[in-house]
Design a protein around this nucleic acid. Structure first.
Lengths: 124, 124, 124, 124
DNA sequence: GTGGTCTAGACCACC
DNA sequence: GTGGTCTAGACCACA
């Protein structure tokens, strides 16, 4: 399994790694059981520090997206249970984010259209 | 003009001030030409550091939402043009956030319903 | 608020810090709203690296025991909601731990007595 | 003598082997004098590295649960004395774990019920 | 080789 | 001053 990550600016590196892997899981590219490259390997290929990759992997592990198997490999895990705590937290974050858009002058309608477009692209 | 800001949020203080004022402009509460309280006044009434308010004001000025008149007062300046740079970044963030929800097992429909609810609450 | 931590061996340092703070919360010594010493201060007084303390603080934050306020201080927060996900995970860990005891020759009765004693001490 | 070990646990492999054998001794399944399969045999049947099994055997030997006979076979040795050092450490860990539960809002009674249930399941 | 942990030193945004 | 992040180099247990 190969992970390619474009290290664009703005977001922190570990966040970009985190987001990329979440993306892979959502898109189906990374299936349950997929073994990720070792933190050391990935850090070398991204030309980034080991700890930075390790941090991303560990947050993914804590959030239930990865597990460490007996061989100490990071393996993609499908989240089974719906976590109401997560939904609550997610809604909070979403409200904050929409507020940010409103604060920057976007109208409710504009935001609604953007959100619809994003979701339609996902469904495809 | 009275600005009330609740400091419970985990947003940075200057961001909260920034957002509040933008919100006022967008909602029409703060009209073009309105003179804002001086940074010192506002900082006193919010019990916040003077520099924090000043920073928010200056960013607002740099972003074209305020101008400094000859009396060195900050005056609201209605800014019509949409900040496309912001919209692009916001969409990116939104996509990632929706991905997180999908990765946690929420369906597109569920997400759509949540988003609708949030927006409806805003319109009220 | 003063935190004293005996850095005994065996457990990792950040775990000891974590456990000590959990202890403080459970015992009531650390109440909601208590501001913890800054990571840098605590690391200095424990003669430990800043990152080590920071790690403990962040795990506590992620687990909902601390929040970062606007002033970037770590503040004790009372967990409100019962989290069923946590209970499930905790039970799993407990089973593992009891298995360990059984594997080392303790009988069910002995274990039961030890557990009773621990809980009775808490109730006092 | 057949040893079956499920490798799904996140315990280290040598620990699982160690625990399994201790369990056998405690339960009476493995009596004093029983000759264990050679490390090579067992490693083959478990599809595990030879050194891993060897390590478990040697720790068991050092802890007095096995002895090496003249044929260099590992033989079960019933060990009666309780390892007080282990018990003390285990109690410490258990206290911390119960603290975690208390900090997460579980009551002493709830915890007690959970613990009872776990132990009853073991006795069955 | 792997991840887990600790240390040390650095820059950033924010207060 | 604070925490957040990144880098670099190290030792450990484990496979």
């Amino acid at each position: 399994m190969y992970i390619t990550i474009n290290l664009k600016s703005d977001k922190s590196i570990y966040q970009q790694i985190y987001d990329t892997i979440i993306n892979g899981i959502v898109s189906g590219e990374l299936r349950e059981g997929t073994i990720l490259p070792s933190a050391r390997q990935l850090s070398a290929s991204l030309d980034v520090n080991f700890h930075t990759v390790n941090k991303a992997y560990n947050i993914l592990k804590n959030n239930g997206f990865l597990i460490l198997n007996r061989k100490k490999e990071f393996v993609v895990q499908k989240k089974v249970q719906r976590n109401t705590e997560f939904v609550i937290k997610w809604e909070e974050e979403e409200k904050e984010h929409i507020n940010e858009a409103l604060a920057n002058g976007l109208s409710e309608n504009e935001i609604f259209e953007i959100l619809k477009t994003i979701l339609i692209e996902k469904v495809r």
